[in-house]
């Protein structure tokens, strides 16, 4: 019997939460926002999500097969990237563009840097940024209930505060915008799921949203702080994108600095930038600072006094 014994170094038990389960819970937490997207934008939103998820998983599979690596699509991380990318696209985006965006996110941003855990920026956001630069018009055409119109953030930017949709519409997501970003209510349900299952901690989303709200008010944008945070992709970005493990700092202290940085950049872009929305670029820029933040916020080693310099 003992011939079959495994001999290894301790510890010998593991927490049941593994990569695949974490990604599964992220997908589950994203589901309410997806359902809201389909409800408000119609079946085409579901089709965009399907295209992105299938493309991302397929590109990861093909890349790993072609480069003779272990295929890791079963960890569901590519599916998460695909779904997040779809949530960042307008429902009317042509399918081929969504597919090219997925290709960029998975191959260029994720796999070329070494795959899961090695990318320096969030793949879904980088994919969206690439698409926004390449196809600015299809990427900023918003339709809701068959009518195209300006997003709340564009209205705020233009100073047309009185034209803003009602509070309830902004909260439940009945406004123009990307598929997964408009329903703050659905995204908050997702946040609750992530917190309950201990997938993320509260610090990044709360600090990010609070700093953005405070600074937008301070910069005198005219809209009420709640209108600012319900508008645009702030909830989606703060809850699901800025909390991406790989591209956020490792310690709580670092995460607070990171989130505050995201908030400052978002408010600056919204107030003075060329775009109405600044969430994706703020997160992408702050992603690049993560190695520095990690170095600066190393935990204090037990028993050691903090070294200078």
């Amino acid at each position: 019997m003992e011939r079959l014994l495994v001999v290894s170094s301790s510890p010998h038990i593991h927490s049941p939460l593994d990569t695949r389960k974490i990604m599964g819970w992220v997908l589950a937490a994203l589901a309410p926002a997806g359902l809201a997207g389909v409800y408000f934008f119609g079946v085409r939103a579901a089709a965009v999500m399907a295209v992105c998820v299938i493309s991302c998983v397929a590109f990861e599979y093909l890349w790993q097969k072609l480069t003779k690596r272990t295929v890791t699509t079963d960890d569901l991380s590519a599916a998460v990237t695909g779904l997040l990318l779809a949530y960042n696209l307008p429902p009317s985006i042509p399918f081929w563009m969504a597919s090219v965006g997925s290709l960029f996110a998975i191959i260029v941003v994720k796999q070329l840097y070494g795959g899961l855990g090695c990318n320096i920026v969030n793949p879904a956001l980088a994919g969206r940024a690439m698409m926004l630069t390449s196809w600015p018009v299809p990427m900023t055409t918003w339709t809701v209930n068959g009518v195209s119109g300006a997003t709340p953030l564009a209205l705020i930017k233009a100073g047309a505060i009185s034209d803003l949709p009602s509070w309830t519409d902004m909260f439940i997501g009945n406004i123009g915008g990307c598929i997964g970003e408009t329903s703050a209510a659905a995204l908050l349900i997702g946040f609750a799921i992530l917190l309950y299952k201990d997938i993320i901690k509260w610090h990044i989303p709360v600090v990010y949203i609070a700093v953005t709200a405070a600074l937008c008010a301070l910069f005198g944008r005219g809209a009420a702080p709640l209108q600012e945070i319900f508008a645009g992709g702030l909830f989606l970005g703060a809850i699901f994108m800025a909390t991406d493990y790989t591209t956020s700092p490792i310690t709580t202290r670092g995460q607070i600095i990171f989130a505050a940085g995201c908030g400052v950049l978002t408010a600056l872009i919204r107030r003075w930038g060329g775009y109405p929305e600044g969430v994706s670029y703020s997160i992408l820029i702050m992603n690049l600072t993560v190695p520095l933040i990690d170095r600066a916020t190393k935990p204090r080693i037990f028993g050691e006094v903090k070294k200078h310099g």
Binding site: H14, G117, Y245, P299, I301, F302
Partner: peptide, 21 residues
């Protein structure tokens, strides 16, 4: 279970009683 790539999730850092990474 098979060893997979590090996600940088920080669970090890929060767990380490000695404050290591």
């Amino acid at each position: 279970k098979p060893i997979r790539a590090c996600l940088h999730c920080g669970r090890c850092v929060s767990a380490c009683p000695m404050g290591l990474v």
